[in-house]
Each structure stands twice: as structure tokens, then as C-alpha cells.
Design a protein around this nucleic acid. Sequence first.
DNA 1: TTGACAATTAAACAAACGTTTAATTAAATT
DNA 2: AATTTAATTAAACGTTTGTTTAATTGTCAA
Lengths: 207, 207
Amino acid sequence: MQDTKQQDKKEDILDVAERLFAEHGFEAVSVREISKAADINIAMVSYYFGSKEKLYEEVVHRKLISSESIVKFIEHHSTYQEKLFAIVDLFINKFFERRHFQNIIFREMAMNQRTAMTELITTRVHQNFSVVYDVIEKGIKHKEFNKVDVELTVMTIIGVVKTYTTSGTIACKVLKIDEVENVYTDKFKARLKKHLRELLTNHLGIK
Amino acid sequence: MQDTKQQDKKEDILDVAERLFAEHGFEAVSVREISKAADINIAMVSYYFGSKEKLYEEVVHRKLISSESIVKFIEHHSTYQEKLFAIVDLFINKFFERRHFQNIIFREMAMNQRTAMTELITTRVHQNFSVVYDVIEKGIKHKEFNKVDVELTVMTIIGVVKTYTTSGTIACKVLKIDEVENVYTDKFKARLKKHLRELLTNHLGIK
DNA sequence: TTGACAATTAAACAAACGTTTAATTAAATT
DNA sequence: AATTTAATTAAACGTTTGTTTAATTGTCAA
């Protein structure tokens, strides 16, 4: 019982820290802010995680692990078109659901510094890229898709979803939505999925 | 003479600050770092700009102003397809040339806070969006383009270019390039342009 | 050459930072 | 119930932060 309670408290801190780091960046958020938002004493951050840096690492690691289910997710589908659409849907769902986290990931990748963490992140993101890459490439080989620039097509898919989810305020203005949080409702999720399906259908020449 | 020399020095500081802010974020960069990189005394930042905050504002403002040439740039072209392709080329050129700056802009938009500056930035970016939006919408009305989700198509264009230019390290891995700076050579600029032209040609049903 | 003003400097400033300490409370174990 | 261990706290730690000060150097007109 006490074990789960402590676990919950750690998770609370991680959730709060993730949101704050995503919204303002690592350096912009102070340990005092985190402890205040999580309603804990400031010393508890060091007590639980060792340091602010290690807290950040744990924020990144805990959700980076679970990104390997993509391959399993698509192996049930027979055609490459189905596989591709399944991945697109999965990506959109994940990005909508974990947009705070994705914000951290892409901000980290936008930095021009080679740390152990950026190395890990780029490797992991590249793995996700590769899954999509393989599907499109094989689809082309099996004459299911037209010949395209595969690398940039993958980047297009990620780019749209990423831009949509991480730039909420601009998405708001463009889509004429009044409230920022409404950008992430099912209605717009469906719209984004529809758009990407049509885009890929046209681009890859799917009948 | 002394006037231009001082102007040059101010520009130097702005250039250095822009690069550092883009690479690490506003809060992560100290005034001491900037002054060291620009080879000036630390007090000169306050002397020239008043404060770190105001320096940041000037970094943003000086390049945000010149984003209104898009409309003029495309009015010479007759067809909407030509207009659209011209914009795409312009966007790619601008993003490649000022990728540090664009990094700042999109990082600012990823934040969940309504300041005077984010307001200004989103307004300006939205204006750029609107230009592209109008071209596509009118192209559809004149039966030059197929019917598409215009807002998300615009977001797609920006999204690809943005993802490519602001995530240099991942672009590197995906495109199998060894050196990060090679991502921004003319060769890959041409490749990106070609990809976007084909993508839009297919999506908008251009013959 | 002198005087006035701008540019530049090193040093000091208070405030905020991440982290640690030592004391206290709560929980678990014996 | 007594004792050991874990959780939590307020206060203090030494650094680093952005900014200011007061002194010095450089520049140009009179």
C-alpha cells in the first residue's frame, strides 16, 4: 500500500514536471515551481530523483520506452496501404494523447548539442521513422504505391502531426477555434486523420 | 563612421544571441555566454538593449518585420499553381537561410503562455498562413485544384519544411548524411522542393 | 590642447538558482 | 511498546543569474 502511494507521488511529480518542461523548457522551469505545482517540499525532488537533471531524464525515459509497439501494431494488416494508415492513426493518437511529451522530444532534437539523451532520443525517433520507411518502401516494391521520395514522405507525415500538436495556438488561429484545448478533441483528430489519408492516397497513387 | 561601427557591433550581438537562443532557448542562455561569444563586456548588453528580455525582443522583431514580401513575390505569376510553387520555394529558401530564427519562432509558439510577443508571432505566422490559404482556396474555386482540406494542406507545407529545418540531427539520420551542416546545402534544398511540388501536384490534382 | 560626451571596463549588487543539512514526523519492524 | 527506518520539513548552503555602479578609456568638436 505504502509502496503504491509513493509510486503515485513520484508519478505525480513526473507528470507535473513533464507538463512544465514541455511548456517552458528545461532551464526555464525551477525546482521550486515544480515542487509548488506538485504540492510537495522542494527537497523531495532531490530525495526522489537525485537532481533536476535526473528528474528530466526520468521524464524522458519513462515514455520513450513504450514506443516500440508500432511494429506489432501493424503486423496484423495484410496490405501495405492498411499498414500505413494504421501507423498514421497510431501516430496521431499518440501525439494527441502525449503532446506535452512530444514537445519535449522535438525541442530536444532542435538543439545543437550531442548529449547522451539527445543521442538516445534521435535513435529512438529514427527507429520510428524506419518502421514507416520500410512500409512505404516495400509498398513501392510490391507496386502497391507509386515511386516517391520515401524519406521526405515519412518526414511529411511526422511533420504535419508534429506541427499540429506542438503549435496549438497557431493551429487554433488557422482552424478558427476559440479555445486552445478544443484543438485536441476527437473531432479534429478525425479531420487530421482524413486529411493525411487523402494526402497519402493521392501521393502514393493508391486506388 | 562610428555610427556604422556601433551598428555593426549591435548586429553582431544580435546575430550571436539569435544563434544561442535558437540552439538552447531563452532561459538556457546567460548574458555572460552571449557577451563572451560576441566578445564584448557583459555590461554592454544592458547598455545597448536595456535588458536580456529586450535583447530577445529585438532578436525576434528585426527579422519578423520582413515577412510581408510574400504577396508581392507571387503577384507576378498568373496561374495559382505557379503562385503556390513560388511560395513553396520562397518558404524553403527563407527557412534554410534563417533556420536559427525559425527555431525561435516555433519554440515560442509551442509555449502555452500568452505574452505580447507570442501574440505578435502567432499573428504574423497566421498572416503567412493566410497567403498560402488564399492561393489554394482560389485555385480550387477556379477549378485549377481539386477540393482539399485547405487549412491542413497549408499546415502540411509548413510542417514539412519546419520539421526538416529545425530538426537537423534527425534529418541527418533519416537522409543518411554524415555532417549536420550538409542538411542545409543546395542539393537537399532542391530535393525538398521537388518533393513538395510532387506532393502538392498529386494532392491538388494538378495536371 | 582642452572639454564634453560616448563607449567600455571591472567590480559589486541583490535575487534566484539547485542542492544539502539537520531536525522532525510518520511508518514499519522487532 | 520500543526501536529502526523512511518520509517530510524549514532553513541554510554556495553559485550563478541579470543588472547596476563608478571609474576609465576613447572620440570628436571647439
